[in-house]
Lab assay of single mutants.
Amino acid sequence: SISSRVKSKRIQLGLNQAELAQKVGTTQQSIEQLENGKTKRPRFLPELASALGVSVDWLLN
């Protein structure tokens, strides 16, 4: 799922939720909701993929 991929990649990069949120241009709460499965397809998906160094396709599939 996107939530597990985001969380595992974030941890692999040594980032906390607030640091990832800053790179993406969103809030820590938005990252938390995404990782908890409350958000399925965030509006900041391209920025998120870029910050994590992955493709949008990788996040979604």
Score class of each variant (00 low, 15 high):
residue 1 S to W: 11
residue 3 S to C: 12
residue 3 S to G: 15
residue 3 S to F: 05
residue 4 S to Y: 11
residue 4 S to W: 12
residue 4 S to V: 12
residue 5 R to W: 06
residue 7 K to S: 08
residue 7 K to E: 07
residue 9 K to M: 15
residue 11 I to R: 10
residue 11 I to M: 13
residue 11 I to A: 08
residue 12 Q to H: 09
residue 12 Q to K: 09
residue 13 L to V: 05
residue 13 L to T: 03
residue 13 L to A: 07
residue 13 L to K: 06
residue 14 G to D: 05
residue 14 G to L: 05
residue 14 G to E: 05
residue 15 L to I: 10
residue 15 L to E: 01
residue 15 L to V: 05
residue 15 L to Q: 03
residue 16 N to S: 15
residue 16 N to V: 05
residue 16 N to Y: 03
residue 17 Q to F: 07
residue 18 A to T: 11
residue 20 L to R: 01
residue 20 L to P: 01
residue 21 A to S: 05
residue 21 A to M: 02
residue 22 Q to Y: 11
residue 22 Q to A: 15
residue 23 K to F: 10
residue 23 K to D: 03
residue 23 K to V: 10
residue 24 V to H: 02
residue 24 V to Y: 01
residue 24 V to S: 08
residue 25 G to P: 08
residue 26 T to K: 05
residue 27 T to G: 05
residue 27 T to K: 07
residue 28 Q to E: 12
residue 29 Q to P: 07
residue 29 Q to A: 12
residue 30 S to H: 13
residue 31 I to R: 01
residue 32 E to N: 10
residue 32 E to Q: 12
residue 33 Q to G: 08
residue 33 Q to A: 15
residue 33 Q to L: 14
residue 34 L to E: 01
residue 34 L to I: 12
residue 35 E to V: 02
residue 35 E to S: 02
residue 36 N to A: 14
residue 36 N to I: 10
residue 36 N to Q: 12
residue 37 G to A: 07
residue 37 G to N: 07
residue 37 G to P: 02
residue 38 K to H: 14
residue 38 K to Y: 15
residue 39 T to D: 11
residue 40 K to H: 14
residue 40 K to L: 15
residue 41 R to K: 11
residue 41 R to I: 14
residue 41 R to N: 14
residue 41 R to V: 14
residue 42 P to R: 05
residue 42 P to T: 09
residue 42 P to F: 15
residue 42 P to Q: 05
residue 43 R to C: 11
residue 44 F to A: 03
residue 45 L to K: 00
residue 46 P to E: 12
residue 46 P to T: 12
residue 46 P to R: 15
residue 47 E to F: 07
residue 47 E to G: 08
residue 49 A to G: 04
residue 49 A to C: 05
residue 49 A to N: 00
residue 51 A to M: 06
residue 51 A to I: 10
residue 52 L to A: 00
residue 52 L to T: 00
residue 53 G to N: 09
residue 53 G to R: 07
residue 55 S to D: 11
residue 56 V to Q: 09
residue 56 V to N: 04
residue 57 D to N: 11
residue 57 D to Q: 12
residue 57 D to G: 11
residue 57 D to L: 10
residue 57 D to E: 14
residue 58 W to Y: 08
residue 58 W to M: 03
residue 59 L to Q: 00
residue 60 L to Y: 09
residue 60 L to D: 06
residue 60 L to K: 07
residue 60 L to Q: 08
residue 61 N to R: 10
residue 61 N to L: 09
